[in-house]
């Protein structure tokens, strides 16, 4: 309940605040609070993802957008009554809908009596993977996850098409003018503490990401979370030691190849199992004598595919945002 009131206060202050910088910070706070809420509802995997995505990546991307656009919201002359009326009506309709809902936490609801318990009883025999969320994600619901990886992939392609086309090539031609941009990056060079801490942290972050990736079937974690954490490592490096340096470590062509490779690895696993005479994404094909070993290996492979694609897309999006010169007039800062 305390978490809820904090969430509500955060959301309402987003409505009130006019400084976009503060709004982005508040949205990070909102994500972190909701991650805490997910933990109290036993959804540890979800909380993990929300904390990494909401408080990590999305804040960075929004700040990147602010750097390229403007810092403050202008005063709007729109009428406030119509939106308010629409919101109140929708809210009332939904309130009416909740009257038929089962009580929170009860165990005999439709949600708890159909496929959920069925999965829970079957996972220990079928898959031998302790984390039920990972088992469902990668095995029973492998098609869904493949589709979602494809959505992440196409969103990444969309961002690249939108904002890293012509302009970047034009920028490369007049690199002389670029000094103002790298000057901004150089500012960070003076922060000795930041640089030392980052050097310590980046390695740890990568290690943690790999742990989350390969330990995802035993503890909370998996490809999605690991991919995001991995990308955060590269992004921190890029923020503290200029974009050019991180591009030396992880060149954009490699990033773009990896984005596609992850999806191909996932889809290819399905094609392999079909070639072996089983159904699409039926991991028994990988080790027909020990179906549960095959399941385990299959989950590892497709999670790796997911992780690679997510890392690739997040880093590619960061590169696309960060390598644009701001078209910002000075007075707006």
């Amino acid at each position: 309940m305390a978490l809820f009131s904090m969430l509500a206060v955060t959301a309402l202050s987003v409505v009130r605040t006019r400084s976009l910088f503060a709004i982005v910070a508040l949205s990070g706070v909102f994500s972190l609070l909701s991650a805490l809420l997910f933990i109290t509802w036993d959804a540890v995997d979800v909380a993990f993802t929300e904390a990494a995505v909401g408080a990590g990546i999305s804040t960075v991307l929004m700040l990147g957008t602010l750097a390229l656009t403007s810092r403050a919201e202008k005063i709007s002359h729109k009428s406030k009554t119509i939106p308010l009326l629409a919101v109140v009506l929708t809210g009332a309709a939904m309130f009416y809908g909740t009257l038929d809902m089962p009580n929170f936490g009860s165990a005999d609801t439709p949600v708890q009596t159909h496929v959920g318990p069925d999965y829970l009883t079957r996972i220990p025999e079928d898959i031998h993977v302790p984390n039920a969320v990972t088992a469902i994600l990668a095995s029973y619901r492998g098609y869904d996850t493949l589709g979602e990886t494809a959505v992440v992939f196409s969103a990444g392609i969309g961002v690249l098409m939108l904002i890293s086309g012509l302009r970047r090539r034009r920028r490369d031609e007049d690199t002389e003018e670029d000094t103002s941009d790298t000057g901004g990056d150089n500012l960070m060079r003076h922060h000795l503490i930041l640089r030392v801490i980052t050097k310590l942290l980046v390695g740890t972050i990568f290690l943690f990401a790999l742990y989350v990736q390969f330990h995802g079937d035993y503890s909370p974690g998996g490809g999605f979370q690991a991919g995001v954490i991995m990308a955060v490592g590269f992004i921190i490096y890029g923020i503290v030691f200029s974009l050019d340096k991180v591009k030396l470590v992880f060149p954009p062509w490699l990033v773009h190849k990896l984005v596609a490779f992850g999806v191909l690895l996932y889809a290819g696993t399905g094609v392999y199992s079909m070639l072996m005479g089983y159904g699409y994404l039926d991991y028994t094909a990988i080790d027909p004598h020990h179906p549960s070993h095959g399941q385990h290996l299959g989950i590892l492979i497709v999670e790796a595919g997911v992780g690679i694609t997510v890392t690739g897309v997040m880093v590619a999006v960061y590169y696309a945002f960060a390598s644009r010169t701001p078209v910002l007039s000075d007075e707006e800062w």
Partner: peptide
């Protein structure tokens, strides 16, 4: 055990959400 199925759905939805958010931000730029 709490039902793992909603967790699976939402976990992937969060990552898809950030991908679409970044698409929106790119459009804004």
């Amino acid at each position: 055990y709490s039902n793992p199925l909603p967790h699976v759905l939402i976990l992937t939805a969060i990552v898809v959400g950030i991908a679409t958010t970044s698409l929106g931000l790119a459009l804004i730029i």
